[in-house]
Nucleic acid binder design. Structure first.
Lengths: 109, 109
DNA sequence: TTTAAATATCGTAATATTGCGATATAACAA
DNA sequence: TTGTTATATCGCAATATTACGATATTTAAA
């Protein structure tokens, strides 16, 4: 069908899946990399950086923003984007917890 | 087009994107959750746990395995799956590095 | 050897994503 | 007001993902 049975899963599972889905494209990883290096950017900066058209970049930025991974504030005719550190902090905590759980397990295979 | 321009991006960016894409589905998050709780499982365990048909679960397990997030070893007529802790460790380090970078930045928006 | 089980693969339908040209929108400048 | 700049949205084509029934494969049991 191609339709995900979201209703069955917990809110936390759906939220995490949405975050990872947003990170699941190399262009969006590259945008995050750029923001980590430059601290902030406008859409045009990424258009100059990546081999993708302006509407495509705008769409990727929108997905990152919808997922809560970046924030954008209008500044004149352009929009200033930067990383939302709170979301990345939550993801970090998630993987720290997983690592802690894995420490108490031995690998089966 | 729907085709990703993978060639432009770095190997690291593509690898990370693939990992996150594999984690970008609630069923696969649920499978990881299950493995964290039970340590190991066979395909049938997940079929009993989630409201998805056996071929669908098998496909999700395959994607997690291809991404390197889980390992599977044949054991008689079934396959024993467990988390590949090395991959999760790398992801954890990735987010720890991001957090460290973000500490030295102030939020722009 | 036949049967049962567990899983994988194939084929396909429904849906989602990706990318971009064309165009809309919004703020500033001349 | 008119033009310019920066971004967003629309609409569409190409491709990818999701889900599952049917079936193949593989191993163990009877």
């Amino acid at each position: 069908m191609g339709v995900t049975k979201k209703d069955f899963f917990t809110d936390k599972q759906n939220t995490l899946a949405n975050l990872f889905k947003a990170l699941g494209h190399p262009a969006r990883i590259a945008i995050i990399d750029y923001l980590l290096k430059k601290q902030e950017c406008i859409c045009g900066d990424i258009v100059d950086e990546l081999p993708l058209a302006q509407p495509t970049i705008s769409q990727h930025l929108k997905e990152l923003k919808n997922a809560g991974l970046i924030k954008g504030t209008v500044s004149g005719t352009s929009v200033c984007y930067c990383i939302d550190d709170r979301t990345f902090s939550k993801i970090k905590e998630h993987f720290l917890l997983i690592s802690k759980k894995l420490e108490t397990q031995q690998q089966c295979c």
